[in-house]
């Protein structure tokens, strides 16, 4: 049995009468891409928010690397090695692409309470950041402010920032959203190799990408996981077909 990196047990979160997360249990094991799919409003993002620490669950446990992360805020969970990308790009928009990645490199190196050395002259920040940008194919755009990057480039930058954290697990919330077919294809190839560095919990609507990438798929409907299994099991699960995939799948 592979090592479990992220373990979610009976997680619950309600907004008034709406049960956004209704007893979700989920594992992420080393070396895998675990895709989380489900119709709009199924509670995928709500789940990601609770794992990342930007929402507090009503009950249930989240264990990361064997440790209960309840009581840890988003920053503390990120320091443990939980890297996330956002459904809509979340960047320091005035900073260049490079400086956005440098921020992650800086965070990984430890305390940000350093007041003297200029960051732009600090090769221990600029060089790893540049390397990450090169990995996602953004090296030429390093000095462009994030606000001026195209949508697809912002998505790439989010991945570069997550990479720079040297994480133990990735939470990627719709990384393909709004990307063209060519961009999606490239990102699919990229993520395919990335699972060797750290397992990925992948929320994605692009079914081609999900079926191409996922080792396992969990289907979330109305806040509940109705099925978890390998790609073929999910494709052929009658309940999943009825609830989500429709006739075309």
């Amino acid at each position: 049995m592979a090592e479990t990196v992220l373990e979610i047990r009976d997680l619950r979160k309600s907004f008034g009468a709406l049960k956004a997360t209704d007893g979700v249990s989920l594992d992420l094991v080393r070396g895998e891409i675990h895709a989380l799919i489900g119709p709009n409003g199924a509670g995928k993002s709500t789940l990601i928010h609770q794992i990342a620490g930007s929402l507090t669950p009503d009950s249930g446990t989240i264990r990361f690397l064997g440790r209960d992360v309840a009581g840890l805020d988003m920053a503390a969970r990120a320091r443990l090695g939980l890297a996330r990308s956002f459904q809509t790009s979340s960047l320091a928009r005035e900073f260049s692409a490079l400086r956005n990645v440098m921020l992650a490199v800086q965070a990984r190196q430890g305390s940000s309470l350093r007041f003297l050395r200029p960051v732009m002259q600090d090769a221990s920040l600029t060089e790893p950041a540049m390397a990450m940008l090169a990995r996602v194919g953004l090296a030429e755009r390093a000095h462009v402010p994030a606000a001026e990057l195209s949508h697809g480039e912002c998505r790439q930058l989010e991945i570069a920032i997550a990479l720079a954290l040297g994480p133990r697990a990735f939470l990627l919330d719709e990384p393909m959203a709004g990307m063209g077919p060519e961009g999606s294809r490239r990102l699919t190839a990229f993520l395919d190799a990335l699972r060797q560095e750290a397992p990925i919990l992948l929320v994605e609507h692009d079914m081609d990408a999900v079926f191409a990438l996922a080792d396992r798929i969990s289907v979330l409907v109305y806040g509940r996981v109705i099925a978890t299994g390998k790609v073929d099991e999910i494709r052929n699960d009658p309940e999943v077909r009825r609830a989500y995939l429709g006739e075309s799948a």
Binding site: M74, A78, R79, S90, M102, L103, I161
Partner: peptide, 28 residues
């Protein structure tokens, strides 16, 4: 010196997008 330092980078990032800063592990 503050503006150009690591501290300044984090501080300015907190102004631009505090969620981004927290997501890389720096408490705003």
């Amino acid at each position: 010196a503050l503006r150009d330092s690591r501290f300044g980078a984090a501080l300015q990032a907190a102004r631009q997008n505090e969620v981004r800063l927290a997501a890389v592990g720096i408490a705003p």
